[in-house]
Design a protein around this nucleic acid. Structure first.
Length: 880
DNA sequence: TTATTGCATGGCT
DNA sequence: AAGCCATGCAATA
């Protein structure tokens, strides 16, 4: 377009739009938001009408419809005016060529939620508006992943924006003082995108961060929240997340370039991402990203932060960080696609929780048999390890603190083995974590980073609940959340990243639903990683992303199977995890038995119960303490209270005097702090902090170890953590600490009265009662159906009921048998003659007859574990 | 004897 | 063809 110039007239200026010429009156407040950025750096001043058109993206349609440069969106066909500065915010370039309108780009992003959506304005700053970039001419940007990103062609652009934020964050710490002033010749060999990143420092340093984009790059700012929009341009668009995940960071926390808070673990030798490497690492390891690439330009006097980077721009970020190898970094191999994070909104939400955190997915890895095995070593992809984990120069490596989605901290030994003149990076000591997450070979662990804390977070994705687009939809809608494959997960239905399992669709387990019956045999198999989950126990854990893995694991599938004993432990963990499950609002759970384990079945995803702290007063009375969601006061509750996640004083029915936020706390802050500290000191958990007027404790589902430590670690010595678990200390008798990494070893005793066991028992009592009720309902229903269908072959049902009376428990004989039969029919529409044999022997020990054996798994494991002992004990207590 | 550790091997990308 | 990485396996505890 022509280059109109805003001419000051006596009464104002002329609209910058050469097609308009409207006079902008002087009294009109400047609308920097309403125009594109000029080469001079100023914002084109437009009249209100043109400004609105520009902001609405219709500027070119209005004024340039007959001008050359129009192209069609590759996705929707919508016309976009390429090459025109006024339309620059409305489209993105595809890596493979062509353009995509911003709307489609956003949609695409939603389909690839791990990528952060950026503001089209800023995006175009990267892509199309940089005058010094080849992109300006319309040539598609070629990223290192150009071809691989085909399915989400906008990703590079998106990711580049994401990285922009991260680099803004990190560069303050790592940026060489004069890195942006490289010799001119130094740039000649740098690719376009590298140049793009190279110039970030300039951009960053051009002004306050809040105004960076607005002042120099965010041409076409669009709103009153201009600074915020700039900030948000590099964080996920809430609109892009169907679940409304709040990944967006507060401006101050995500963008503000300030040293990260020093966690209380700073004195710990453990490496946590939140802690500056320089301090946590001491002199042992110079903190940098690539151990094999000594920093050359990293002369920042500030503590270095461990700021891993998004996948696509990893090398660039490393370049930024290292200062070195702006050129030769290109020769570095990129992460393999199978390690690209495919984290979903749900996962992100799980990770971020309620905090205003920015989640940066780093990478993921599908667990191999070795990873998930009892050795407790998780092999890390080399590139990922070197890019995202601290540099280690000694094979012994470093302890690395990783947080799981529930906020629980784990410490793994991050180390390497020399291997063929290279290294193999491993995380050691992952077994407790793997078990807590109930992961098996084929499941995927994800590593992300939370900003501004900078913590490394490890999530997981069960193979059976993968995160393909369709599976993402599954998670969102819950429409296809299914029971586990036969002989498969102990977690029947597992959400993501520490989510508690839930059944989202009652219909999915109804025996009358033939589709679901089919689903039982053909399990949801596809995940985003493209692997297929095999059916049946023999194929357990064979979800692998590649032929190689399939063949490798497949040929050795026996070794992939977790021992029965371990399985039992997983079940125990799962059951205990349920302790914090609460039915969703306005919904009452049903009960379904899968693999001999009961699962509460929700129409919607259950919610997490509020975390509480158990105490015992001198009189020996047990209480638990919970914090009001509103006033943050701590209230004492009966030991058996189950609180919703958002619990407030008004729900404190047990203590009417303190059922209002206005009522005082029973304990003073010091007492409460002492109480909580007592519970958490051993774990060095940084989640409890006494602040000015209240005590905040993170809530959410903690794992067994958390419960265990709360209940059992009352007298924990304040010594070093055990190798079993970072939160525990020598002498800790919790189930985590007392077990070797292999998972074998002692377990809770039947008579154990720890909180874990108590809650398990309590929970089971509840389940028993519910199931009894359901059984009776089913019984009547079954009887009615049988009467309605007298011609039904008797072998279909009756043998199940009558074949083995010995399996009937003392309480509810036929009804429970029918329940078993029914459930088995649900789970596996196959003859169940084997079911009764192992169970029959032991069922009488278990009240309420609830241990149906699955067809594929007649082993007695299910009723020999501690859980069954707990059940028996529970029912015994109930009977008393 | 069993579990753990550290390295070597070889399939596969 | 290099090198990653899953896993085998011997040494060690």
């Amino acid at each position: 377009m022509s280059s109109p110039t805003s001419v000051s007239l006596s009464g104002g200026k002329i609209c910058f739009n050469s097609h308009c010429k409207e006079v902008i009156l002087d009294h009109t407040p400047p609308r920097k938001k309403g125009g594109w950025r000029l080469r001079s750096g100023e914002i084109a001043e437009l009249c209100d009408r043109c400004s609105c058109a520009f902001e609405q993206g219709s500027f070119c349609e209005t004024f340039h419809s007959d001008v050359a440069g129009w192209r069609n969106c590759e996705a929707c066909g919508k016309r976009v005016h390429c090459g025109c500065v006024a339309s620059a915010p409305t489209y993105v370039f595809l890596d493979v060529g062509g353009v995509e309108c911003i709307a489609c780009a956003r949609k695409s992003l939603a389909m690839a939620p791990n990528q952060m959506l950026s503001s089209p304005m800023l995006m175009h700053q990267h892509v199309s508006e940089r005058r010094d970039l080849p992109v300006k001419s319309g040539r598609p940007i070629t990223s290192p992943f150009s071809g691989q990103w085909r399915q989400a062609p906008h990703m590079w652009n998106m990711t580049s924006l994401q990285s922009d934020l991260q680099q803004r964050l990190s560069y303050e710490f790592d940026r060489p003082s004069n890195i942006e002033k490289l010799a001119p010749g130094g740039r000649h060999s740098i690719s376009a995108h590298e140049k793009k990143f190279e110039e970030l420092p300039e951009r960053i340093m051009s002004g306050s961060h809040n105004n960076i984009a607005r002042d120099r790059y965010a041409h076409g700012n669009t709103g009153e929240n201009d600074p915020d929009s700039t900030r948000k341009s590099v964080i996920p668009d809430p609109c892009s997340t169907s679940s409304g995940v709040k990944i967006e960071a507060k401006a101050n926390s995500s963008i503000k370039l300030q040293p990260l808070p020093i966690s209380k673990e700073d004195s710990s030798p453990l490496i946590g991402l939140a802690a500056p490497f320089s301090s946590t690492n001491g002199s042992r390891e110079p903190m940098k990203f690539l151990s094999n690439q000594p920093p050359q330009l990293t002369t920042s006097p500030l503590p270095k932060q461990f700021y891993p980077e998004g996948i696509a721009d990893t090398e660039l970020q490393i370049q930024m960080r290292n200062g070195r190898a702006r050129v030769d970094a290109r020769s570095r191999t990129q992460l393999l696609p199978r390690y690209w994070p495919r984290i979903t909104d749900q996962e992100l939400q799980q990770i971020s929780g309620d905090t205003n955190s920015v989640i940066t997915p780093l990478f993921e890895k599908m667990l191999s048999a070795s990873d998930a095995g009892r050795i407790g070593r998780l092999v890390l992809p080399k590139k990922c390890a070197e890019a995202y984990f601290p540099t280690i120069s000694q094979p012994e490596g470093l302890p690395l603190k990783v947080q799981d989605a529930s906020g629980k901290d784990w410490v793994f030994q991050f180390r390497f083995w020399p291997n063929n003149n290279s290294r193999m990076y491993v995380l050691e000591g992952v077994t407790p974590c793997i078990q807590a997450m109930q992961l098996q070979a084929g499941d995927t662990v994800t590593f992300s980073r939370i900003d501004p804390e900078g913590k490394l977070v490890m999530g997981f994705r069960k193979a059976s609940s993968g995160s393909t687009e369709q599976d993402t939809q599954t998670h969102i809608s819950g429409s296809d959340f299914s029971t586990p494959p036969e002989g498969n997960d102990k977690i029947a239905v597992t959400d993501l990243i520490g989510n508690v399992p839930f059944r989202a669709s009652k219909a999915s387990i109804e025996p009358s639903n033939p589709i679901n019956a089919a689903d039982k045999s053909s399990w949801p198999k596809f995940t985003k990683a493209g692997f297929i989950q095999q059916d049946g126990p023999a194929a357990r854990s064979l979800q692998v992303p590649s032929k190689r893995k399939a063949s490798t694991l497949g040929s050795k599938s026996k070794r992939l199977r977790i021992e029965n004993e371990e399985s039992m432990e997983l079940k125990l963990t799962w059951e205990e995890a349920q302790e914090l499950l609460r039915p969703p609002p306005n919904s009452s759970p049903g009960i379904v038995v899968i693999e001999g384990h009961e699962f509460e079945e929700y129409e919607e995803a259950p919610v997490l119960g509020k975390r509480t702290y158990f105490t015992t007063n001198p009189a020996g009375e047990n209480y638990q303490w919970a914090q009001c969601e509103d006033c943050l006061k701590w209230r004492k509750l009966p030991i058996d209270a189950l609180l919703p996640f958002k619990w407030t004083c008004t729900e404190n029915v047990s203590d009417p005097q303190r059922s209002s936020c206005s009522s005082a706390q029973e304990l003073n802050l010091e007492q409460i702090a002492a109480m909580i500290s007592c519970k958490t000191d051993a774990s060095k958990r940084a989640k409890v902090k006494v602040e000015s007027n209240n005590i905040e404790v993170s809530d959410g589902l903690d794992t067994l170890a958390n419960l265990a430590i709360l209940g059992e670690g009352k007298n924990l010595p304040t010594s070093q953590p055990t190798t079993r678990h970072p939160r525990h200390r020598p002498g800790c008798t919790c189930i985590v600490c007392i077990q070797p990494p292999s998972g074998k070893g002692p377990k809770h005793k039947q008579t154990c009265t720890c909180n874990v066991c108590l809650t398990v028992k309590r929970r089971f009592r509840t389940l028993m009662l519910r199931r009894e009720k359901r059984q009776s309902e089913k019984e009547s229903e079954t009887a009615r159906k049988q009467q309605q269908k007298p011609m039904l072959p008797s072998s279909e049902v009756l043998p199940q009921v009558k074949s083995d009376p010995s399996s009937t428990g003392p309480g509810d004989d036929n009804a429970s048998q029918k329940e078993i039969a029914s459930n088995d029919t649900i789970v596996n529409a196959a003859p169940d003659h084997r079911r009764t044999s192992p169970t029959a022997v032991k069922a009488p020990q278990i009240d309420l007859n609830i241990q149906p054996e699955r067809e594929e798994d007649p082993s007695p494991k299910s009723d020999t574990g501690s859980m069954m002992r707990l059940i028996r004990d529970s029912t015994t207590r109930t009977a008393r």
